[in-house]
Amino acid sequence: MSAALALFSRELKLAWAGGGGPAGPAAFNLAALALAPLAIGPDGDTLAAAGPGVIAFAALLATLQPAERLFGEDAADGTLELYALSGAGLATAVLMKTLAFTLAVFWPIAPIAFIAALAYGLEAGPALILSLALLLAAPGLALIAAFAGALAAGLKRAGLLIALIAAPLQVPLLVFAAGAGRAAAEGTGLEGANLMMAAAGSLAALALAPLGAAAALRARLE
């Protein structure tokens, strides 16, 4: 366990400080959210109706954005080999790395979602629900993106490939996260069920994605 904790704290420090930390995905998230109303039009009702979906979609894009460097750099500089030999196991290493990365880099997703939801004309209550839903869904989104990143690690134009691989697998989380915000905004009373499903999706990804990513990385090391 101490090896896993050491891995976690190392990756946390690296993700926090290296490569701009949370700035890149957060800026990407904000840019997407700033551009969407320009495309949709300034009509308040339309924006409020589209808000939860657009915000959840922007969060999904933000989790895809840094997935290329998650394992790409480790595969290039030999860190992966060391992790495989570390005794903690590759799956544990993947889990610790992805969780540390989620914590350090993707934390702005929830506050950005809250502010954006207000800017899109949602009430504070639904905005909070949407923000909570993305807080629950973000680890799952990040884990699936990490799985795709592990499959595409070290390939040319890996970014595009990661988006194509991860997007269909992220569909359930997108549906439930956006669904929670929509249900809260429309007052259908289904936000609780959607929140639970989003959390379930994240937990399922937590159980499966590290194993899949570790298998993909091991294939690369052989």
Binding site: P168, L169, V171, P172, V175, G179, M197
Partner: peptide, 11 residues
């Protein structure tokens, strides 16, 4: 994932 996707989309 396919059954989960199917379920979520049905939902």
């Amino acid at each position: 994932n396919l059954p989960i996707i199917k379920f979520s989309v049905d939902w």
